[in-house]
Structure formats: structure tokens, C-alpha cells
């Protein structure tokens, strides 16, 4: 029962990946990322547990708040501060990146069938979802010019790693996941500061302009 719901959630998360790839407006990109964060936060609760584990609930709550509210909120603030709304000229434009992402998702589903998985994970979409999210993150990181989109790409990449982490939720302490979350938060802070600096220095958020600093 809960396996079906879990798959539905992962499927939705994969759909959000594609939405993120296809959206040119930064607010909708951030909204997709935050919604994906909330979905990911619910997932630990849906995994089958023999006993009630308060740590699982804690992590779920922390993820939902962190990925769904705090980080997107910070990104929105950065966006407003930098006064950008739109990704103007991406390196990989939207239709190709959408097709790449869809191809990657299909390939991930096909690939996951070939992997040696535990029988309890074989039926779920956890692994394909993880691979697809990481791929989406990479496409965004490579294909977008604005720093905020790249941060979103980084977050989606991290979401993929989180999905992989869910496979180990029984065997490893959730500290690992919390550590990752912490990393990301710190990363976002750092990037937020950098974004601000870039904006002040160059009057633009286009990372292409950073190439003048290569010397």
C-alpha cells in the first residue's frame, strides 16, 4: 500500500524535475524545488517501519522545513535582492534540456532494473528517482547561466543523493542525512553571500561574466 504511495511521490518528484528543466522563470523554478523538498520530506514516513521511530519523524520534519521553506525562502530573497526574474539566455535551451531530462529519466528507469538491489527496494522507484534527480541537477548546473538557477540545480542534485540515502534509512543513522542537510544549508548561505557580492560587483548575476576573472 505505502509502496504505491511512495512510488507516486517519487513519480511526482520526477515530474517536478522536468518542470524545473522546462521553466524559464526563476520563481517557478524555486517553487518546483521547494515542492520537491516537501515531497522528499514526506517520504521517510512512507517507508515501511516495524516500530515507531521518533528520529525518522524528526528528519522528515527537518527536511520539509529546510528544503521546503527555509532554502527556497532564502533563494527568493536572493532573487529579489538581485532583481532577476528570468533566465535569459541559457547554454542549453529549454526544449533540449527537457528532452535530455526525459531521456535521462527513461534511461534511469531502464538502468535501475539492471542494478543488483535488495528485494525490498526492487519494486520502488527510489533508485531511478535518485539517478534522474541527480541528472536533472547536473543539466541545470551545466545548462543555466544565472547563479540562482545553478543553486536550484545543486539542490535537485542533493535531493537525488537524499533519495539514495533513503535506501539506507534502516541501516545507517539518520545523522548522515542531517549532515548533508547541514552542508547544503551552509552551501546556500555561502552562495547567497557570493550572489550578493557578484551582483554588487558586476551588476548582473550572469556567471559567464565571471570568466573575466580566470587569470
Amino acid at each position: 500500500m505505502s509502496g504505491g504511495t511512495l512510488n507516486l511521490f517519487i513519480g511526482l518528484a520526477m515530474g517536478l524535475n522536468l518542470l524545473a528543466l522546462g521553466s524559464s522563470r526563476l520563481p517557478s523554478l524555486i517553487r518546483a524545488v521547494s515542492l520537491q523538498g516537501v515531497l522528499l520530506g514526506v517520504m521517510p514516513l512512507l517507508l515501511e517501519h516495524d516500530t515507531f521511530d521518533w528520529r525518522v519523524v524528526l528528519v522528515a520534519l527537518a527536511t520539509m522545513v529546510g528544503k521546503g521553506l527555509v532554502i527556497p525562502g532564502l533563494l527568493r530573497r536572493a532573487m529579489r535582492a538581485a532583481n532577476v526574474e528570468r533566465e535569459m539566455a541559457p547554454f542549453i535551451s529549454y526544449v533540449p534540456s527537457l528532452l535530455l531530462g526525459a531521456g535521462g529519466t527513461i534511461a534511469a528507469v531502464a538502468l535501475a532494473r539492471g542494478l543488483p538491489l535488495l528485494p525490498e527496494h526492487a519494486g520502488t522507484l527510489l533508485v531511478p528517482g535518485a539517478i534522474a534527480s541527480m541528472l536533472t541537477g547536473f543539466i541545470l548546473l551545466i545548462g543555466r547561466a544565472k547563479a540562482i538557477s545553478q543553486v536550484c540545480g545543486y539542490l535537485i542534485l542533493e535531493n537525488g543523493i537524499y533519495l539514495f540515502g533513503l535506501l539506507l534509512i534502516h541501516s545507517t543513522p539518520l545523522l548522515v542525512e542531517s549532515g548533508i542537510l547541514l552542508d547544503v544549508t551552509v552551501g546556500v548561505f555561502v552562495i547567497g553571500i557570493i550572489v550578493d557580492r557578484i551582483q554588487r560587483a558586476f551588476d548582473s548575476l550572469d556567471t559567464r561574466k565571471l570568466t573575466t576573472l580566470r587569470e
Binding site: L18, G22, L98, L99, A102, I106, V109
Partner: peptide, 16 residues
């Protein structure tokens, strides 16, 4: 084209 590509992908995923 982006929206039509999305429609195509929706149908493709329905197929899969």
C-alpha cells in the same frame, strides 16, 4: 514548442 514538447513527454510517460 516547449508546451507541445511537454505534451509529447506526458504521452510518452503514459506509454511507458
Amino acid at each position: 514548442p516547449l508546451l507541445l514538447t511537454t505534451a509529447f513527454l506526458l504521452c510518452l510517460f503514459a506509454l511507458l
